[in-house]
């Protein structure tokens, strides 16, 4: 199969080739997901060199995995970013690097780059980032805070409760309310095709 043919494959089909240890397929996989993965790793560890180490470790673990990708784990993007998140949180805990800031005010950085410097895919990713941040920014601060601490900081609900000096039930309730509101806003403003738009 040529590289051009691989580039037209759906993620799930591409992973079948990656599972067979096809390095060309893995390269296409990295080209698709390496950018978002690196961005996530950098957001969590707050350091470019450490983020590179995280990506190297995470993608090599995917390449070397004997179990391979399982469609039951969700989309290839979600599955691979989950691996990157876990590696990044492990790296953050191992390193002496201070935790990165936990606000979502990245627009100033994004706006600082001229649009013509961006490729189409980068522009789409950044537009998506703005939309998602819009959904999160609309949350009450105490709700977005616990979501960020859990997802980007890797803290458990009990660690967050101790950190903020709040009852565990309060923290879990904030997580739920924040996620439900964010999910509802996504349903209103963004195409989410793989799930019902109605709260079960």
């Amino acid at each position: 199969m040529t590289r051009e043919e691989m580039q037209r494959l759906a993620d799930e089909d591409l992973m079948t080739l990656v599972d067979r240890k096809d390095p060309d397929a893995f390269e296409v996989f990295y080209d698709r997901h390496g950018g978002p993965a690196y961005s996530l790793a950098h957001r969590i560890v707050g350091d470019r060199t450490l983020a590179e180490d995280v990506i190297q470790e995470a993608f090599l673990s995917i390449w070397r995995s004997k179990a391979g990708y399982d469609r039951a784990r969700g989309s290839v993007r979600s599955w691979s970013l989950g691996i990157v998140r876990n590696r990044a949180i492990d790296a953050l805990r191992r390193s002496a690097t201070p935790a990165p800031r936990l606000d979502l005010d990245d627009d100033a950085v994004l706006e600082g780059q001229h649009a013509t410097e961006l490729t189409d895919s980068e522009a789409i990713r950044r537009e998506t980032a703005r939309n998602v941040r819009g959904a999160l920014d609309a949350l009450p601060r105490e709700q977005s805070q616990v979501i960020e601490l859990a997802y980007f900081g890797g803290f458990s609900h009990s660690e967050i409760a101790r950190m903020l000096g709040e009852p565990l039930g309060t923290i879990k309730g904030r997580m739920r309310l924040g996620l439900e509101k964010a999910r509802a806003r996504l349903a209103e403003g963004m195409a989410v095709r793989d799930s019902s738009e109605v709260l079960p």
Binding site: G35, P36, A37, S39, L40, L81, A129, R133, M190
Partner: peptide, 12 residues
């Protein structure tokens, strides 16, 4: 799943 998409998008 969309939380990672909210972060500053960097090119590796």
């Amino acid at each position: 799943d969309l939380l990672p998409a909210s972060v500053e998008q960097l090119e590796p």
